[in-house]
């Protein structure tokens, strides 16, 4: 194949490389910025090679925080974000796989109404129902708690739909074979349905983890205490517009650190992710 590599093959590669460069360059600049002293960035001449302060900056970011603004170590923020994203992803998966199981495999009155009600919540994301949701969270004393941070985001129509579509591709005969093998609904769920959904769960986890990680508006509303803030909120709070000086090196280091967990999740679960979206194991 090597000798047949022509312009027609090279051109797409060139375009792809260009795309990667366009996407990666700001990330690179962000990294470079995070390794230089604050003054170097502040004077407007951004260097393009890494500076000398890598360990120092990242140590300060993780364990000390900014000296002027948030004063919170980013490690704590990362932990908050991690707990929130994981809880949202796992909670959404648990609830939606169960509701999809009910809708697909059980006949009960108003089954389709229930399904369409779930479906309609697609039109009601947090941003739309923010006032009533906030009121409920406040009345239940959920402000500044992990429960308040995650519960309102967990109910999910998308994941329910996704599992419903997957369950409908599982042949009925598998259910019947389980029935004849003496497996009741609970056994069927744990012994057959859950193992068959593994790749789908993994794919969904990747998507939902990133969704949870990137939440901005809801955490901003529901957390007021500094020790409850997530990293996404933290970055925003570090950037001051008024009199104080923004510690850009720390902001950039925080941005780099905030990027890491989602990237890791994607990289580590990539194989499963692709499998879950492409392959149907039946």
């Amino acid at each position: 194949m090597v000798e047949r590599r022509s312009l027609g093959d090279l051109l797409p590669h060139f375009i792809l490389c260009l795309g990667v460069a366009i996407v990666a360059f700001p990330v690179y600049l962000c990294f470079v910025g995070s390794t230089h002293p604050q003054e170097v960035i502040a004077n407007g001449h951004m260097p393009v090679t890494p500076g000398p302060l890598f360990f120092q900056t990242y140590y300060q970011t993780l364990f000390v925080g900014t000296s002027g603004t948030t004063r919170q170590p980013v490690a704590a923020m990362l932990m908050n974000s991690m707990i929130m994203a994981t809880a949202i992803a796992l909670g959404k998966i648990a609830i939606s796989i169960l509701s999809a199981y009910a809708v697909v495999y059980f006949k009960f009155p108003f089954r389709m109404s229930a399904f369409w009600l779930i479906f309609m919540t697609l039109m009601l994301p947090v941003e739309v129902r923010i006032y009533p949701t906030y009121k409920i969270a406040a009345d239940l004393h959920l402000l500044d708690t992990y429960a308040g941070l995650t519960l309102p985001l967990i109910a999910s129509a998308t994941a329910t739909l996704y599992f419903r579509q997957f369950f409908m591709t599982i042949p009925d005969e598998l259910v019947e074979a389980s029935m004849l093998d003496g497996a009741g609904p609970v056994r069927f769920f744990f012994d057959t349905l859950l193992p068959l959904s593994r790749t789908n769960i993994a794919a969904l986890f990747v998507i939902l983890f990133i969704y949870g990680w990137n939440q901005y508006l809801w955490p901003l509303l529901v957390t007021t205490r500094d020790d409850m803030q997530t990293v996404v909120i933290g970055i925003k709070k570090m950037i001051v517009t008024a009199d104080a000086l923004t510690e850009w090196n720390i902001v950039l280091a925080t941005a780099m650190l905030a990027m890491l967990p989602p990237v890791l999740v994607v990289v580590l679960m990539q194989r499963w992710f692709v499998k879950g979206l492409v392959e149907t194991e039946k």
Binding site: E173, E176, A177, S178, L180, D191, P195, L196, R198, E281
Partner: peptide, 14 residues
């Protein structure tokens, strides 16, 4: 107390 063989076998894939 019966056993059934299905058209598409219905084996548990996992």
């Amino acid at each position: 107390d019966i056993a059934m063989v299905f058209q598409n076998y219905a084996l548990y894939p996992h």
